[in-house]
Computed example of a mutant assay.
Amino acid sequence: MIPPAESLLKYDNPVLVSKSSDRKSPKGRPLRVSPQQPMDSTPVPPPPKLKSSSTDATKQDSEEILHTILPPREWMEGNQLWVQQVSSAPCTRTDVVHLEELLDTKLQQRQARETGICPVRRELYSQCFDELIRQVTINCAERGLLLLRVRDEIQMTMAAYQTLYESSVAFGVRKALQGEQGKVDMEQRISDLESESQDLRKQLNEQKAKCDAIEKREHERRQTEEKKHMEEIQFLKRTNQQLKTQLELMIVPKK
């Protein structure tokens, strides 16, 4: 396992855990057992004042809350397990100014984008927020827990936005692929319709040529029939005139 990278969150010095069975839960606290004192006649010292005990208990509770909010990080080097807990040292105004300067330096060193979606910038600001939670929790555990709720809400909202973004990207890609497939199908359909249109135009031209040929042939036939009909009419008129003349000659009495 690779040792964790440097973080804006302040940690104590790493502690070597010799066996994996000695690995403790992030919420656990080491037991403080004092060595056994030999029995002697020395009088028992008076108990500490109540105020000091209350202060120590409050400090211990704050540390437990701090380690619950910000669990220690662990890594393996060979067969050795290292554990590093967050620092419980109080912070000063100088620490806050140094944190801001360190944040700006990290942003420049890792070339984080100033606008838009940037995982590097988001990671650094998350570390900075955790460090602010650590500093606040040391002085006021309740305020630290409230900031923890704010941090979790922000992370949940960001996760929801990320899920929505990924689903929208997947939807867009799917629609784009469907559009490309539809485009290919439409182009194929257009090609088929153009080919069918050309065939229909060819058939139309052939039918027009046939129609023109039939009209020409029928026109010639009609002219021939009309000419023949006119000749028959003329022949019948001449025949009728001759018969009429003969009939008149036959009817006129002889003198």
Score class of each variant (00 low, 15 high):
35 P>S: 10
76 M>K: 14
150 V>N: 13
126 S>A: 00
17 V>W: 14
240 N>L: 07
68 T>K: 06
104 D>K: 10
159 A>S: 09
13 N>Y: 15
247 L>P: 07
9 L>E: 00
227 K>L: 11
75 W>Y: 09
72 P>E: 02
174 R>V: 03
40 D>W: 05
57 A>R: 15
190 I>K: 13
220 E>L: 09
234 Q>R: 13
76 M>P: 03
247 L>A: 14
200 L>N: 03
123 E>Q: 11
159 A>V: 02
129 F>A: 11
55 T>E: 15
60 Q>T: 14
40 D>S: 14
176 A>W: 08
16 L>V: 08
137 T>Y: 14
29 R>S: 03
83 V>Y: 05
81 L>C: 05
67 H>Q: 11
157 T>N: 08
55 T>R: 14
30 P>M: 03
190 I>T: 15
245 T>E: 13
60 Q>M: 10
37 Q>N: 04
168 S>T: 02
184 V>A: 01
75 W>A: 02
168 S>V: 00
232 E>M: 09
207 Q>R: 05
206 E>P: 04
56 D>Y: 13
109 Q>Y: 06
156 M>Y: 12
20 S>R: 10
255 K>W: 00
39 M>E: 13
29 R>Q: 03
91 C>V: 12
76 M>A: 11
58 T>N: 12
197 S>M: 06
172 G>P: 01
51 K>T: 11
25 S>I: 12
175 K>V: 00
178 Q>E: 11
103 L>S: 04
89 A>L: 08
66 L>P: 02
192 D>C: 00
200 L>W: 01
231 E>G: 06
184 V>I: 01
148 L>N: 09
131 E>K: 09
195 S>N: 05
109 Q>G: 04
91 C>R: 12
94 T>P: 04
249 L>Y: 14
92 T>S: 11
208 K>D: 04
55 T>K: 14
218 E>T: 09
168 S>N: 05
139 N>R: 11
175 K>A: 01
124 L>Q: 02
119 P>M: 12
234 Q>T: 11
42 T>L: 09
171 F>E: 14
11 Y>P: 01
237 K>I: 12
214 I>D: 15
130 D>E: 15
120 V>N: 06
101 E>I: 00
11 Y>G: 01
136 V>L: 04
110 R>F: 01
168 S>Q: 03
17 V>C: 15
194 E>D: 12
96 V>Q: 05
93 R>Q: 12
254 K>F: 08
191 S>K: 07
231 E>P: 04
57 A>K: 12
